[in-house]
Design a protein around this nucleic acid. Sequence first.
DNA 1: GCTGCGCTTTGACACAGATCAACGGAGGGT
DNA 2: ACCCTCCGTTGATCTGTGTCAAAGCGCAGC
Lengths: 246, 246
Amino acid sequence: MNKPMPVIESCSTCPIRHRAVCAKCEDDELEQLNDIKFYKTYSAGQTIAMRGDALDVVASVVSGTATLERAIEDGRTQLVGLLLPSDFIGRPGRDTLQYDVTAVTDVTLCCFYRKPFESLLKTIPHVQERMLEMALDELDAARDWMLLLGRKTAREKIASFLMLIAKRTVHPDGSVLGDTSRIELPISREAMANYLGLTIETVSRQFTGLRKDGVIGLDGNRTVLIPDLETLLLESGDDSDGGVLF
Amino acid sequence: MNKPMPVIESCSTCPIRHRAVCAKCEDDELEQLNDIKFYKTYSAGQTIAMRGDALDVVASVVSGTATLERAIEDGRTQLVGLLLPSDFIGRPGRDTLQYDVTAVTDVTLCCFYRKPFESLLKTIPHVQERMLEMALDELDAARDWMLLLGRKTAREKIASFLMLIAKRTVHPDGSVLGDTSRIELPISREAMANYLGLTIETVSRQFTGLRKDGVIGLDGNRTVLIPDLETLLLESGDDSDGGVLF
DNA sequence: GCTGCGCTTTGACACAGATCAACGGAGGGT
DNA sequence: ACCCTCCGTTGATCTGTGTCAAAGCGCAGC
């Protein structure tokens, strides 16, 4: 179903070396992280952790996609985060997990036991620095998402989501935005619905609508063709964005 | 309209000394912050800063309430944060502001120029530590809010909002949760609507509904009586919460 | 005490998206 | 090749919330 998981020898060859919590580390600091890290893999669909679990381990996503989910009694659920490679799971200074974490594709995590990691935070300022940066970035992303959930129409929500994926898609040649004309959706219709505060039926209808209007093309369920990124951006509702993409 | 602003002599007598970014500072560290801080006040309704503004100054809210807002072209706006005393405005490492910041009551800010503040971050680990803690807390709050915006009904949204205010209300006697039977809403119906992803008409109708059902009482527009916090919690949709209130 | 303005409430109606239900199509197991 | 299951699509209808409109209420200024 998937390509075999790449074997990672050491931090220096790690694919997320320059984007994860370790991004700012010097070689000697990296060494310290290297000493206490360990890898764990999960297969698609598997639960990584559940709300209320003891938070003994924190981790970075090395490859694959996972979701962060919040649920209420009657079955309603809201996806509150999409964890792509380099994203961080868990938080120092808290001992139970607040969300359900699920692997949606096969996932490899670079894990640390929380306690030693917390000690390292104090001795390696570059890790804490990077953690703060990442937390603030996620906070901004969460706030943009609040605008989407509170005020955007279904069509705008779908368009915004596609823009998000397009922006985070790394292409085979390594470029990030070069050819965004073809993107792979990392999650199912159901997960998308949960992310966007919609039902799967509405998601499906909006996809059909955007296709009929020529904004996107569909090639199977998971592949979306974007003939013109500008048009899609317009549909997303946040044009005149100040234009800052990253 | 308001009580006169309290004059703050030094950090040691500051009302937010133990909750703001400086919470973990030792006396000598506090001294350093003290040296570069300055106060600024805004009156109710005034714009503190706008999206796109250069972010030369970062600040903590000392007293009053401000809002963090995101807008799209056609006038739709979404409140993405409620800034109460001890909350932080601005972020190190970014040079333009992402949101509109508005004072909803008279507000006093404890300000720092961003550049020197960033330098201090590197030399005073306790500030960075606290910033990280606060950023992660806000991230959790933002995610809970995403659940609210994406999945809750109008009535649940209002109930959740009232719970939020009840929890953060500090009573005259200094207790936090003691007598929550009477709370003051810090913001107008319009701001509430923008916070909850509703219209003011719906907000109004839900207030009326909750009153008719005896869940709350109203005393004027800004004062809400809560006969039974349990009942309100039930209406908010996140009972079986794990019960952790703080 | 009146007048006018802003905020809130209430009412009538419209509509986007939810809900309920049926169908289609791809992939895997036998 | 067949069936079965899972996922996505499409259709018909319902409903919660938005929209448009008007009326109530409190408060500042004259």
